[in-house]
Design a protein around this nucleic acid. Sequence first.
DNA 1: GGGATTGATAGACTCAGTCCAGAAAATGAT
DNA 2: ATCATTTTCTGGACTGAGTCTATCAATCCC
Lengths: 190, 190
Amino acid sequence: MKSERMSAGRPRASSRDTIEEAAAELFLEQSYHGTTIEEITQRAGVSRATFFNYFGSKSDLLWIDADHAIERLEELVESGKPLRAALASVAAEVGPERVPLAVTQSDAMGTRDELVASGLVRVARVAALLRSALPQEAGEGRHSLALNVRANSLAGAVVAAWGSWIMGGIDRAPLADYLRDALALVQLEQ
Amino acid sequence: MKSERMSAGRPRASSRDTIEEAAAELFLEQSYHGTTIEEITQRAGVSRATFFNYFGSKSDLLWIDADHAIERLEELVESGKPLRAALASVAAEVGPERVPLAVTQSDAMGTRDELVASGLVRVARVAALLRSALPQEAGEGRHSLALNVRANSLAGAVVAAWGSWIMGGIDRAPLADYLRDALALVQLEQ
DNA sequence: GGGATTGATAGACTCAGTCCAGAAAATGAT
DNA sequence: ATCATTTTCTGGACTGAGTCTATCAATCCC
């Protein structure tokens, strides 16, 4: 995943990690909205233009960990792993410190639709993934209402588990436990 | 709802409707992203600043009908109507033409996260509303996992119903039918 | 060394969204 | 009628995200 590259071109500087670190520091010091992309790149020692080589938008910085988990889930599902097993696997890989910056910056989240929205884009991605991974019942079309309901409800449950886990504070149970309980409540499929 | 005002101050020009109409026209002619707020307000004959007296953001224009439905739902729930009855009421009020601009502009939606995000903000609003309206079980806290799962799953089902209804095309069944079927699939509460 | 490829940079540009000071239009009181 | 007050409308300046383009730098392969 990281870099199986040996071929042509100028090698990337270590910019990505540097930018992430600079951003995390500045968000703590000044908050998300109080920090500009220019400040981040200045502290990271790169140009502003470089930022957009690595990230599509400022809010991407808030969801790095979540995006990583979603990518892992996509990998597992594509490799043929059963859905619930894949979900459990990814949950087990998420350590107690993997709380996205978006949540520690939640004062901003409360007021600003922009941040809520950037988070929900991830939810939509999960829902779409689930919809493609759920077993279709006989004669059921790709856009069946029942399929959509199952996918969305399941996504809702996954998100609820994750949200409650976050709110559980530092001494909470592992995410996998929350997920198990949440999935038990939606006995929609299998 | 509209205007029970007789008191002081300069009366509003008919600006709001004018802006909505101008925007709808321009979005059809030029697409959402091809239209600037300045163009909209020019056609509507008001200043750019006035736009932000009526709408919080450009993307609000895409969700006027959805926002109206959500507000109705909030009213009904606050007035003490049972949740499922309130949902059914609002669904029954939604005519076949009430497809938000966001959907007719869906070519833009497909590619641009911004539009997905603006729509999902509405989903979050619905989920929050459901969470506050769902009956709490005995000894269940405000941030209970089970409560969150029920609220989110239900929101997912509502959204699935709405989405399938939209996709059903012009000769589809009433939204209320889709909603009934979707809710029947999530037998989580009551 | 000479391409070819890829990454980094600078700079200009568009546009959404914020802010503010002031003009315009109404009301009610004196 | 005049004045103070309240609310809307307007113009203009400003910030900052995101796009685009041209150019330079670093690496590989020949």
